[in-house]
């Protein structure tokens, strides 16, 4: 899924580049159209056979839900306004938690490059925190911050913070020594080495942590909503599940998938902005592959 959205992005980039348009444009679009056409065919096939199986009573719609039932549930909740409320709560908590945790974690991880001693001191703590399933912290967080949206933001921040920190620090420590030496041979100060070499060369690590963190942030928010909340997609799924209302559960699951894909697109856009230099490198290679 991730890969294919990257592919779509490439197509967008290529059409924007004026110089090589003629040669790469035509086969690319054909491939993209083919890809989308196949996806549509497969999705329609699954939905049709699912609906047919339910209507002919081959499977129990009570245990599985049905496409038409899911659509009805979706419309009903959308019209009542409850769905938008739930989507808003989950998306806001995810976005804020994701952004706060990922940014703070990345900054601290990069900053640890300045002090290898501090990095060594806190190493076991970070490893331990990374190993703990963050959802185990939910009861504490909810007791401290209540059952509202803020506790979900806090959970998502914690879940994404550690991943971002570890990845950014790893990126910072794997900086090419010879680039640092080159900087020093020009008489560079430590802060110049940090901003001109360490930060830019760690960007791929930071971005890859961002990508992982989309999933972690959603797990944390939805998990928190399962445990204690009054709204949100997690809350909706949890309540509907207890009532055996499978169609509503499906609505929640599908919306979460869409939310995740949207977030991937945002991170992909960020990546294309921050790593435009490596895109110009990857560009010709993918066009050869296509």
């Amino acid at each position: 899924m991730d890969h294919s959205s990257g592919e779509a992005l490439h197509v967008g980039l290529e059409t924007a580049a004026p110089t090589v348009k003629k040669r790469t444009f035509a086969p690319r679009v054909t491939l993209a159209v083919q890809t989308y056409a196949w996806r549509l065919v497969i999705a329609l096939a699954i939905l049709t056979s699912w609906e047919t199986a339910v209507r002919l009573k081959w499977v129990n719609s009570f245990l599985l839900g049905s496409p038409s039932g899911i659509w009805e549930a979706f419309l009903r909740m959308l019209l009542s306004g409850q769905l938008l409320n739930d989507i808003g709560a989950t998306l806001t908590a995810t976005l804020v938690g994701f952004a706060a945790g990922s940014l703070l974690g990345s900054l601290l991880g990069l900053g640890l490059w300045y002090s290898p001693l501090l990095a060594r001191v806190i190493d076991p703590l970070v490893i331990a925190l990374n190993g703990v399933p963050k959802i185990a912290l939910a009861p504490m967080i909810i007791i401290w911050f209540g059952s509202g949206m803020f506790s979900k933001m806090a959970l998502a921040s914690i879940a994404t913070f550690v991943v971002a920190l570890l990845s950014a620090y790893q990126g910072a420590t794997q900086v090419d020594r010879s680039l640092v030496n080159l900087m020093r041979s020009f008489g560079a100060k430590k802060y110049q080495v940090f901003w001109k070499v360490v930060v830019p060369s760690s960007i791929p690590w930071v971005i890859s942590a961002f990508r992982l963190n989309i999933g972690f942030a959603l797990v944390a928010v939805v998990g928190g909503e399962f445990i204690s909340s009054d709204r949100g997609l997690g809350h909706m799924i949890f309540v509907a599940g207890n009532l055996f209302n499978l169609n509503t559960v499906w609505v929640g699951v599908i919306l979460l998938m869409i939310a995740a894909m949207l977030l991937y697109t945002v991170v992909g856009y960020l990546e294309s902005k921050l790593l435009s230099w490596s895109k110009s490198d990857a560009g010709p290679r993918t066009s050869v592959g296509a």
Binding site: S178, L182, P200, I203, L275, D281
Partner: peptide
């Protein structure tokens, strides 16, 4: 001025 074995150009 120190020119090293690898060109060490910053790719970004």
């Amino acid at each position: 001025g120190y020119m090293m074995q690898k060109d060490l150009l910053f790719p970004w």
